[in-house]
């Protein structure tokens, strides 16, 4: 079934990405369009809880004038009684004009888009894809740097399990980036993504050090959380846990245009004293998520 579902943006062309970026910018200038989706029903199906993403999507729908239905906890739905995903999607398709779904299983959104004509927006399927996060990351980079081309992007922390860094890596491939993968051995960028870089001709360097000097030529510092439970070797965790923490005194030599991004929630990988730096951008980045999601909902509904 062909429809306007947004399951992945990894294969979007430059033109498609740019169109979405421009529409996101329009929504940033004016987030409130109470009549744009008047009379439309948006369903948010969170088979797995994710308060941050759900609030952002529901705010986007509300600011566009849509009504929102859905659930935030699969325990209250029929899926806990053994209903298949297909049946749940078919049922909700009778009510809603667009379905925004989050699921713990990988590929769930793609499958959902195959069983209904109602457009599906993937709000995260396990550790697989999360296109609205990717879109807000791209928008934050585009907005703060004025371009996506030819940037030095440092990805720091957990590059093994970090879904956001993998998606960002793939969606940047058309923009001639240079990546610096800064991670401990146990959490380094998986081979499949390095292979992807080599196939696509994307330059990358792998680094273990994370210091004032090592980040001096970064345009974007994309921080992620190093989680204790990801380590098989806890000695290794103890050794590296403080290595990938960004402190304000590390920003002395960085480029003026450099911005710090983080998918949030943050724990201790960015010290509180960084928040006041003009380089800190993670809270605005989260806010950009609202505008990006307004753009994605409109695209899924075919609204110009």
């Amino acid at each position: 079934m062909m429809n306007r579902s947004i399951v992945s943006i990894a294969d979007y062309s430059r033109e498609q990405i740019e169109r979405l970026l421009e529409r996101t910018a329009e929504f940033e200038r004016e987030p409130n369009h109470p009549h744009l989706l008047e009379g439309r029903v948006v369903a948010t199906l969170f088979f797995e809880p994710s308060t941050r993403t759900r609030l952002s999507f529901e705010t986007a729908a509300n600011r566009l004038g849509a009504r929102v239905i859905g659930f935030t906890d699969p325990k209250v739905t029929s899926s806990s009684k053994g209903e298949t995903l297909k049946d749940t999607i078919k049922m909700v398709s009778n009510y809603a004009d667009v379905i925004i779904m989050r699921h713990r299983l990988e590929g769930a959104a793609l499958y959902a888009s195959e069983v209904t004509d109602v457009p599906i927006i993937n709000a995260g399927d396990g550790s697989n894809l999360h296109p609205s996060q990717t879109m807000l990351d791209l928008y934050s980079i585009w907005k703060t740097q004025g371009r996506l081309d030819d940037l030095n992007i440092f990805m720091v922390g957990d590059l093994k399990y970090g879904r956001t860094v993998h998606s960002l890596l793939m969606s940047m491939r058309r923009y001639n980036p240079t990546f610096h993968f800064v991670a401990p051995k146990e959490l380094e960028m998986p081979e499949e993504y390095k292979l992807y870089c080599r196939k696509e001709g994307i330059r990358y360097v792998e680094e273990r050090v994370f210091t004032e000097e090592s980040i001096a030529d970064a345009d974007i510092l994309y921080m992620t959380r190093v989680q204790r439970e990801r380590f098989t070797d806890l000695m290794e965790y103890e050794r590296v846990k403080d290595t990938y923490i960004l402190r304000a005194d590390m920003l002395g030599r960085c480029r003026e245009n450099m911005r710090i991004l983080h998918p949030l929630p943050r724990v201790n990988e960015i010290e509180q004293d960084v928040d006041d730096s003009p380089h800190a951008y993670y809270f605005q980045q989260a806010q950009n998520g609202l505008y990006a999601r307004e753009a994605l909902i409109c695209q899924a509904l075919g609204i110009e």
Binding site: T84, K86, H103, L105, G107, S127
Partner: peptide
């Protein structure tokens, strides 16, 4: 082979 793939959890 991926246990958290949708295909291992839906009749599809």
């Amino acid at each position: 082979a991926n246990p958290v793939c949708i295909t291992n959890n839906e009749p599809m």
